[in-house]
């Protein structure tokens, strides 16, 4: 069921908007023209994931000593241990863990943001 969490322009560009939908703590991130909603809970140690940061990460490189930055604005990093999750899929990156974060579909209509829970 879709829930209106507010106007797009009211969602912060740096931190998350943290809301409670039907008793579920949810963080809504806006980065560029993308909006993501995730459960505010890291599966590792139950940290408040929405207090983390959204950025890119270092992609796997075959060559020792080489760094390749990518996935800009697509990776949420937990504020505690720094575990990284793909906001598109919820998966922990690059096989570090099988655990996933809970993601929710988001739609934006007429400047309003809806999270489907």
């Amino acid at each position: 069921m879709e829930h209106n969490v507010g106007r797009l322009e009211d969602i912060p560009n740096t931190d998350a908007l943290i809301v409670d939908i039907e008793g579920r703590p949810i963080g809504v991130f806006k980065r560029g023209d993308k909006v993501y909603a995730v459960k505010n809970l890291c599966p590792h140690k139950r940290a408040p994931l929405a207090r983390g940061t959204v950025e890119g990460t270092m992609l796997p490189t075959a060559c020792v000593g080489e760094f390749k930055y990518g996935m800009e604005n697509q990776v949420v990093k937990c504020p505690w241990h720094g575990w990284e999750f793909d906001l598109e899929t919820g998966k922990c990156l690059f096989g570090v863990s099988d655990s996933k974060i809970k993601t929710y579909p988001v739609s934006v209509r007429d400047g309003q943001v809806y999270v489907d829970v």
Binding site: M58, P60, E66, F67, G82, E84, F94
Partner: peptide, 14 residues
Amino acid sequence: NWRQFRREVPWLEQ
């Protein structure tokens, strides 16, 4: 430590 700091050593794939 790799689970949290993998991005420092992206050449380790396992």
